[in-house]
Amino acid sequence: MGNFSHQNDKSITPEALKSLGRYDFPDPMTIDPDGIGVVAMGGDLAPETLISAYAQGLFPWFNEDEPIAWWCPEPRCVIAPTGYQPSKSLRKQANSARWQLTLNQAFDEVIHACSLPRSNGLPEGEHTWIHEEMIAAYIELHAQGYAHSIEVWDDKGQLIGGLYGLKIGGIYFGESMFHKASNASKLAFWGLMRLCGQSKVALIDCQLPNDHLMSLGATTLPRADFLTQLDVLLSHQPVKWHNHSHKPLAVSLLDTTEPWRLK
């Protein structure tokens, strides 16, 4: 299919997004009626394949030495930006910290940081499920305007946290986050909520629920409801984030009316 830059996607309908690439993904509700989660195996991580999969509610999740597995879990973990409320302690930290948020300034660094082991027992130097094949695929999606990162920088200019994911229409598909300083990933998440709210992104897909996401205000939707909402959200035309990657935001401004300077 070649390059299909997001900058020229105004004419791409949800149906066209789903038909990108060379694979026909099965209907999750038909192929996986029991809600196990895995709906397909194989294929590749070409940009067209990934966009087609996400547009159908699927995402890749597999270890480096395994075939590509495409997931559509039941239920689906999501959060609406308008319903997010930061904790009092996070507000206090944002008001006092001299940290900054940026958009799309260090995508490569963020995804590599997300790939490194946490407290999960992996040997030093080993990666999580975000291995080199995945990293290369999402870096290409970033180059084409679909994948985005939010970075957190301390007052010495050091990258201390961030997150990345994909934005298609009115939905953001969150992939991973990291922190090197306390609450840095939570501030990135708050920044994402405010950015989505300002740019008419109505839903963040968090994929699978966990205690951390639920503590941030995430909830779950039945898979069928998520897929129904997805069809509507794909057709939205929100503000394109790549136009605003050069404008840093002081974390102390997160609690203002419209912190991000969007056109």
Rank of each mutant, 00 (worst) to 15 (best):
172 Y>E: 02
255 D>H: 08
133 E>S: 15
82 T>E: 12
16 A>N: 04
96 S>W: 07
108 D>F: 05
207 Q>H: 13
180 K>I: 04
101 L>M: 10
181 A>Y: 03
242 H>D: 15
87 S>I: 00
151 E>S: 07
230 L>F: 03
199 S>G: 03
24 D>G: 09
237 Q>D: 14
232 V>F: 10
174 G>W: 07
235 S>Q: 13
153 W>N: 01
260 W>P: 00
48 E>G: 03
61 W>K: 14
43 G>A: 12
86 P>S: 01
167 K>C: 14
261 R>D: 15
26 P>C: 12
77 C>D: 09
256 T>V: 10
163 L>F: 05
121 G>Y: 07
53 A>T: 05
223 R>Q: 04
56 Q>T: 11
109 E>W: 02
152 V>W: 06
229 Q>D: 10
211 D>Y: 05
12 I>S: 01
203 L>T: 01
261 R>A: 15
261 R>F: 03
2 G>P: 04
95 N>I: 04
126 E>Q: 15
206 C>Q: 05
3 N>V: 07
48 E>K: 07
173 F>C: 10
153 W>M: 07
228 T>Q: 15
191 G>W: 03
37 G>N: 07
185 S>Y: 05
163 L>C: 05
209 P>Q: 14
150 I>G: 07
254 L>R: 04
61 W>E: 12
30 T>R: 13
8 N>G: 00
28 P>M: 09
163 L>E: 11
41 M>L: 14
156 K>H: 11
227 L>P: 00
178 F>Y: 09
226 F>N: 10
182 S>W: 08
172 Y>P: 00
154 D>V: 06
1 M>L: 01
35 G>H: 08
196 C>I: 00
49 T>W: 01
36 I>N: 08
109 E>Y: 01
247 K>W: 10
13 T>W: 06
196 C>H: 02
52 S>G: 03
189 F>G: 05
143 A>K: 15
127 H>R: 15
224 A>G: 04
152 V>L: 05
138 Y>H: 14
48 E>S: 15
234 L>C: 06
186 K>P: 03
158 Q>N: 04
191 G>V: 01
130 I>L: 13
31 I>D: 00
137 A>P: 01
63 N>A: 08
88 K>S: 13
150 I>Y: 11
120 N>D: 15
253 L>A: 13
55 A>G: 02
5 S>V: 02
238 P>A: 14
24 D>R: 14
24 D>Q: 15
131 H>L: 09
216 L>N: 07
44 D>Q: 08
191 G>F: 06
8 N>S: 07
27 D>N: 13
